[in-house]
Design a protein around this nucleic acid. Structure first.
Length: 214
DNA sequence: GACCAGGCACATC
DNA sequence: GATGTGCATGGT
């Protein structure tokens, strides 16, 4: 493990000690996690929660029901999450893919090889790298590190990366350095988002931050 | 009323 | 490969 790896591990341990396990991803089923991953694209989680509550109330938080529902109606139901016409189309695209390729069965999807499954997900319209990796890690329990805006911001402020690094560069660095398991990737990313949300928006480093001195 | 939020696709250079 | 734009709501 290189010097960056040691810093990453120290960072992880401090965050875990300070905040405790985050129990991510919030969601009662793997399918709900996938839906949340699409709805939260460039959107606050509070808005996503409203949309998910609407979906539950309407009884369409299952692959088959979502496949049946009219796209315009789906758009109205998820309206609070923003970009609702776009996201309705993306949800439809995913359930079509999911039912076509895996018979709407998460276990069947999970049984696929990580690398090829990732490529197939990236091939679905509206699923980019972060959404694909969130699905792989949080819905399917695959060992992959999710990179997001918070992750990049925090890592660059601690001089582990430059802001300009690509998604893949950040991900490869982390996975190469720490070689973590599913549980660690899960918890680490959740903790970084928690820290990012609550403490490190604009301020480079904040007082009382568990990462102080790193 | 500006600014932000757990991105992505597409056009253009 | 880098940069710019549309997509839209709800909270601060």
């Amino acid at each position: 493990m290189g010097s960056k790896g040691k810093i990453l591990v120290e960072m992880y341990e401090r965050l875990l000690r300070a905040f405790g396990p985050r129990h991510w991803w919030p969601g009662e089923s793997p399918f709900e996690v996938v839906v949340g991953a699409i709805l939260t694209q460039n959107t606050s989680w509070a808005n996503v929660e409203k949309a998910i509550a609407n979906l539950k109330k309407a009884g369409i938080l299952t692959p088959l029901a979502m496949r049946r529902v009219d796209e315009d109606q789906l758009a109205r139901i998820i309206k609070p999450s923003g970009f609702y016409r776009l996201k309705a189309s993306r949800l439809k695209g995913f359930v079509d893919f999911f039912c076509r390729e895996f018979h709407g069965d998460m276990d069947r999807m999970r049984s696929q090889d990580l690398g090829s499954l990732r490529k197939r997900l990236l091939n679905v319209d509206g699923i980019g790298q972060e959404t694909a990796d969130s699905i792989l890690l949080y819905a399917l329990g695959k060992p992959i590190f999710v990179v997001d805006a918070y992750t990049k911001r925090i890592f660059s402020r601690h001089n582990l990366i430059s802001e300009k690094w690509s998604y893949g560069e950040v991900q490869s660095m982390v996975m190469g350095e720490i070689g973590g398991d599913v549980g660690m990737y899960n918890e680490f990313h959740a903790l970084l988002v928690f820290l990012g949300k609550h403490q490190c928006r604009r301020i480079p480093r904040c007082d009382g931050c568990p990462l102080e001195g790193l």
